[in-house]
Simulated assay, not measured.
Amino acid sequence: MKSFVIGLFLAAVVLVPPLHAEPFTTAAPIALVIETGSGTVLLDKNADKPVEPAAMAKIMTVAVVAEALRKGQVSRDTEYLISEDIWRKGGAPSGSATMFAAVRSRVRVDDLLRGVMVQAANDACLALSEGLTGQLEGLVPRMNTLAAEIGLQHTQFRNVTGFADPAQLTTARDLARLLGWLRRNEPDIYAIYRERDFTWNKIRQTNRNPLLTQGLGVDGGVTGASDTAGYGVVVSAVHGDQHFIMVLHGLQSNAERASEAKRVLEWAENSFRPRLVFTKGEIVGEASVFGGTANTVPVVTDRDVSMLVDSSGTERLSAKLLYDGPLEAPVRKNSAVGRLQILREGQVSLEIPLYAAADVPVGSLPQRAFGAIYELGIGLIQGGHDKR
């Protein structure tokens, strides 16, 4: 895959920083903030590092139950038994997050979902799994299958609660993708995340999402913590016409998680403005072509491309055109030929596909021969550089 730095075509969107501009930082060892409408990555700190999801794994438990509801395999009024095994491992005796469901009682799926999504209740997770499959961890295979279908490339589930397991791993990027998927595909179930409290067995518990009542437009999210991974949170928030998903993980305490999550989300919502980078059909750059009537082909986007840029004008953007090259003729107009990466502080902030803006037919024999000689010469030059 060849990589070409674009200067001329991106000149209109490059912002030169003042001499003492300081990039935004967070105390969280792992952090990711995405504005989903444009696809702009605003903050990426170890977003692909494997980490235990802790209770944030419950998002996938909810997702597979929502899928079963949509397929008619169960209804929200179906009642499941709270077995003694569920009660001991996830109920009051467990000392973990629980909805305090009474042993041998029967609880509706609708209430169990509220237990999971508002209270992070482990007994509710286990009851849903045992009710649907007959086994406490019977939903795990479906969780992993759905993870693959969604495109969670670095996630593996081992239980339905998020209890610590060294083999249960995810990344901040996968968690953001999972929450976004649930929000888009299961909006009726996702809406439960907005509820501020839930009472069961005469015990009222408030939502564990620390940002839900902070006036930041948060419409859902999950927290999680473990001794090994630290404190984490993944939230979704709407601010005007923009939608953000934020993931922080590895913080030292519940208090630090709450304060840092608020600070990072406020920064994301208030520090950027949308900017049109390229219009549909605008030439972005050129890709080399081998064996054609032309040595290059212009490349374009198939849509208007906007992204969020720093409102203060204190950052510098750069871009790379990436493709497997040279392209081999014939090249068809509108065929996908590569992708454009726009970088902020050296990290990919936006990636978009690129398409050929013209046809490049197969060239004549002399043209192909000249192209072969040219490519051989380039290869020798690159080989010589590689030996230095």
Rank of each mutant, 00 (worst) to 15 (best):
M1T: 08
A57S: 15
R76T: 14
L69I: 14
T40L: 02
E67S: 13
A92W: 04
P53Q: 11
G91S: 11
K49F: 01
L42I: 12
S3M: 09
K58I: 11
K49E: 15
K89D: 09
G72I: 10
G72D: 09
D48M: 04
G39L: 09
K2F: 01
A66N: 10
H20I: 01
V41Y: 04
E52Y: 08
A66Y: 03
E79F: 00
K45A: 00
F4L: 15
K2H: 11
T40N: 05
K58G: 08
L42E: 15
V5Y: 02
T61A: 04
L8D: 06
T26G: 04
T26Q: 09
K2M: 11
T61W: 00
A92F: 02
E67Q: 15
I30W: 01
L69M: 14
V16H: 03
S38Y: 13
A47F: 00
P23Q: 13
L32D: 10
P50K: 12
I82Q: 07
I30M: 12
S38D: 08
S75K: 01
A54P: 05
V5L: 07
V5M: 12
V51Y: 02
E22I: 08
I34K: 07
S38P: 11
M56V: 07
G37Q: 12
N46H: 10
S75I: 02
T25Y: 00
F24L: 05
T78V: 03
N46A: 15
V51F: 05
E22W: 01
T36M: 08
E67A: 08
A92Y: 01
D44M: 02
I34L: 14
L10D: 05
T25R: 13
R76W: 01
L19H: 04
L32K: 09
L19Q: 14
A28E: 07
L19Y: 03
V74C: 07
A21D: 00
A31V: 12
R70T: 14
V13Q: 04
K45G: 03
E67K: 15
P29C: 08
K49C: 03
A31D: 07
D44P: 02
V65M: 04
P23I: 07
T61R: 01
P18A: 06
L19A: 15
I86L: 04
S3V: 13
T36S: 14
V62E: 10
P53T: 10
Q73R: 15
R70V: 13
V64A: 06
A68V: 02
S75P: 12
V5D: 13
I59P: 13
D77G: 11
R88M: 12
A27Q: 12
A66L: 09
G7E: 13
A54C: 10
G37D: 06
P18M: 05
E67N: 10
A47G: 08
P17M: 00
S83V: 00
L69R: 08
L69S: 11
D48G: 05
T61M: 05
L42H: 05
L10V: 14
A47E: 11
G39D: 05
